[in-house]
Computed example of a mutant assay.
Amino acid sequence: MAPTSKDPNPPSGWWYNTRTGEVEHGALSRSIDRLGPYPDEATARRALEIARERTSAADRADADWSEDD
């Protein structure tokens, strides 16, 4: 897949494409379809797991905050 930008210094990092389920090095696809950047390929492969963990943590924090009212 060709880069979407003609930037001579594109951002580096690894991305997880939510549309294709593939890991990409550099910003190759539309930003709306990407999670990241991640520091390495292995971490990018865990993107959905990481997102679930972060969502669960945020949900717990919201519940704790609501209980304080």
Score class of each variant (00 low, 15 high):
residue 1 M to F: 06
residue 1 M to H: 11
residue 2 A to H: 12
residue 2 A to T: 15
residue 2 A to P: 14
residue 2 A to R: 14
residue 2 A to F: 11
residue 3 P to N: 13
residue 4 T to E: 13
residue 4 T to N: 08
residue 5 S to F: 07
residue 6 K to Q: 15
residue 6 K to H: 10
residue 6 K to C: 13
residue 7 D to L: 04
residue 7 D to A: 08
residue 7 D to I: 05
residue 9 N to E: 14
residue 9 N to T: 05
residue 9 N to Q: 08
residue 9 N to S: 09
residue 9 N to Y: 13
residue 9 N to H: 13
residue 10 P to Q: 04
residue 11 P to H: 01
residue 11 P to E: 08
residue 11 P to V: 02
residue 11 P to M: 00
residue 12 S to N: 09
residue 12 S to Y: 04
residue 14 W to E: 05
residue 14 W to I: 00
residue 14 W to T: 00
residue 14 W to F: 14
residue 15 W to M: 08
residue 16 Y to S: 01
residue 16 Y to N: 00
residue 16 Y to A: 00
residue 17 N to R: 04
residue 17 N to G: 00
residue 17 N to T: 04
residue 18 T to I: 09
residue 18 T to D: 06
residue 18 T to C: 06
residue 20 T to C: 04
residue 21 G to R: 06
residue 21 G to F: 02
residue 21 G to Q: 04
residue 22 E to G: 03
residue 23 V to A: 06
residue 23 V to C: 05
residue 25 H to R: 12
residue 25 H to A: 05
residue 25 H to T: 03
residue 25 H to K: 08
residue 26 G to P: 00
residue 26 G to L: 02
residue 27 A to K: 13
residue 27 A to L: 15
residue 27 A to E: 13
residue 27 A to M: 11
residue 27 A to V: 14
residue 28 L to D: 02
residue 28 L to M: 13
residue 28 L to C: 07
residue 29 S to Y: 05
residue 30 R to G: 07
residue 30 R to N: 06
residue 31 S to M: 14
residue 32 I to M: 11
residue 32 I to T: 15
residue 32 I to E: 15
residue 33 D to C: 09
residue 33 D to P: 01
residue 34 R to Q: 10
residue 34 R to W: 07
residue 34 R to S: 10
residue 35 L to T: 04
residue 35 L to F: 06
residue 36 G to E: 06
residue 37 P to C: 11
residue 37 P to Q: 09
residue 38 Y to W: 07
residue 38 Y to V: 00
residue 39 P to R: 10
residue 39 P to M: 07
residue 40 D to P: 00
residue 41 E to L: 04
residue 41 E to A: 10
residue 41 E to T: 00
residue 41 E to W: 07
residue 42 A to N: 12
residue 43 T to Q: 14
residue 43 T to S: 15
residue 43 T to F: 11
residue 43 T to N: 14
residue 44 A to N: 02
residue 45 R to N: 02
residue 47 A to M: 03
residue 47 A to S: 06
residue 47 A to N: 01
residue 48 L to E: 13
residue 49 E to M: 06
residue 49 E to H: 12
residue 49 E to V: 13
residue 49 E to I: 08
residue 50 I to M: 05
residue 50 I to N: 01
residue 50 I to R: 05
residue 51 A to N: 05
residue 51 A to I: 05
residue 51 A to L: 03
residue 52 R to T: 08
residue 52 R to G: 03
residue 52 R to A: 12
residue 52 R to D: 02
residue 53 E to I: 09
residue 54 R to Y: 02
residue 54 R to E: 09
residue 54 R to A: 14
residue 55 T to L: 15
residue 55 T to I: 08
residue 55 T to R: 14
residue 56 S to I: 11
residue 56 S to H: 08
residue 58 A to G: 03
residue 58 A to N: 07
residue 58 A to F: 02
residue 59 D to Q: 14
residue 59 D to C: 06
residue 60 R to T: 11
residue 60 R to I: 03
residue 60 R to H: 09
residue 61 A to Y: 03
residue 62 D to F: 09
residue 62 D to E: 15
residue 63 A to S: 10
residue 63 A to M: 03
residue 63 A to D: 10
residue 63 A to H: 01
residue 64 D to Y: 06
residue 64 D to R: 12
residue 66 S to A: 15
residue 67 E to H: 12
residue 67 E to T: 08
residue 67 E to D: 15
residue 69 D to V: 02
residue 69 D to N: 09
residue 69 D to G: 11
residue 69 D to F: 06
